[in-house]
C-alpha cells in the first residue's frame, strides 16, 4: 500500500512564533525552536519530520503564510 509522506519548509524569519501550527498538526511534527529568529521569535520547526503526512493543516492555520508543504507517495 502506498504511503503518503510530507515535508514542510518554514520561512523562519517571517515566523512570529504563535504556535498555532503546533496544535494544528495531527502527527506532532512541529515544535517551537529553542532558537529565535531576527525578530526574537521562537520559530516553528519540524522536529519530527518522519511523521509528516503533508496534510497542510499547519500551513492552513498559519496567519503569516510561512509554511510551505510538499507531499508525495512513497
Amino acid at each position: 500500500m502506498a504511503k503518503v509522506k510530507g515535508s514542510i519548509v518554514v520561512d523562519i524569519e517571517k515566523c512570529k512564533g504563535c504556535e498555532l501550527c503546533v496544535y494544528a498538526c495531527p502527527t506532532q511534527v512541529i515544535a517551537m525552536s529553542p532558537d529565535v529568529n531576527v525578530k526574537g521569535y521562537h520559530y516553528a520547526e519540524d522536529v519530527n519530520p518522519d511523521a509528516c503526512t503533508g496534510c497542510t493543516n499547519c500551513a492552513v492555520v498559519c496567519p503569516d503564510g510561512v509554511i510551505t508543504v510538499y507531499r508525495m507517495k512513497v
Partner: peptide, 15 residues
C-alpha cells in the same frame, strides 16, 4: 527524503 520531496511537482501548499 526531504530533499526528494521538496520539488515543485510535490508542492501542495504555499503562500
Amino acid at each position: 527524503t526531504k530533499g526528494k520531496m521538496i520539488k515543485p511537482e510535490n508542492l501542495v501548499y504555499t503562500k
